[in-house]
Design a binder for these strands. Structure first.
Lengths: 117, 117
DNA sequence: CTTGACCTTCGACAGCACTCCACTGTTTAC
DNA sequence: GTAAACAGTGGAGTGCTGTCGAAGGTCAAG
């Protein structure tokens, strides 16, 4: 698929996609006329990129994850382990958020929310 | 308190605190010799700033929160409302994380983790 | 009265994630 | 065959959030 259609489907700008290609976050072939040609799985990959980004991962972190996944020998175990790591990261993050939440609700309970507890 | 102690207590750099002052995120008096003099409640305020920042608020958004607080007749109630909003943000974010987690665990199950599901 | 720790300002720079522009080439429709 | 819609490149610029360095003022201790 060409860049325009990919942009439409992912709701990213073409410039953003070119930028992502430049930093190695997406890869595509080139047609004889020089146009980029992306495989269809780029769509879910970019969706994944945006999700991870929204969760606070930097593009370089996301790129490393993708690289590790692509470079892995087809051992499903290795790939699954990588994803399991990310699940662990998520769980840690959620625990952190839960702590923040508890902290804030406690402050709400007290009459002086900005004072140290 | 002078900037050095504030930096120590908040674990921010002096440069960061000066930067925050420049963009109106913190305010302090000046001593006759020109040194900044921050009130003690700056410490919890900066703690709040970092918390809000970790939740994805930009510094300018946080600055607006501070303005609202200053304009509010009952600052404790106003801040409690703000923190309650923050709790909502946390809950949204945790839901997002839970979705990503479910997505990843599903990919782990399929054996082709980066392919479209 | 010097040393060292503290503080000041100003301006430049950096990293991230885009975003825009100018100019050029290709394909499709009429 | 020409216009519209698509694509390419390179480079500059933007907004955010700091970070650093240079040059200098202030203050307490020895």
């Amino acid at each position: 698929m060409r860049i325009g259609e990919l942009a439409t489907q992912t709701k990213l700008s073409k410039d953003t996609i070119r930028f992502y290609e430049k930093i190695g976050l997406v890869e595509g072939d080139r047609r004889p006329n020089g146009y980029r040609d992306f495989p269809p799985e780029t769509v879910p990959w970019l969706h994944y990129v945006r999700t991870a980004q929204a969760l606070g991962f930097s593009l370089s972190e996301i790129g490393k994850h993708g690289e590790q996944l692509r470079d892995s020998p087809d051992s499903a175990a290795a790939l699954s382990a990588l994803l399991a790591d990310k699940v662990q990261v998520i769980d840690d993050r959620m625990a952190e958020l839960a702590n923040l939440r508890a902290d804030l609700t406690e402050r709400i309970g007290t009459g002086c929310p900005l004072r140290p507890i």
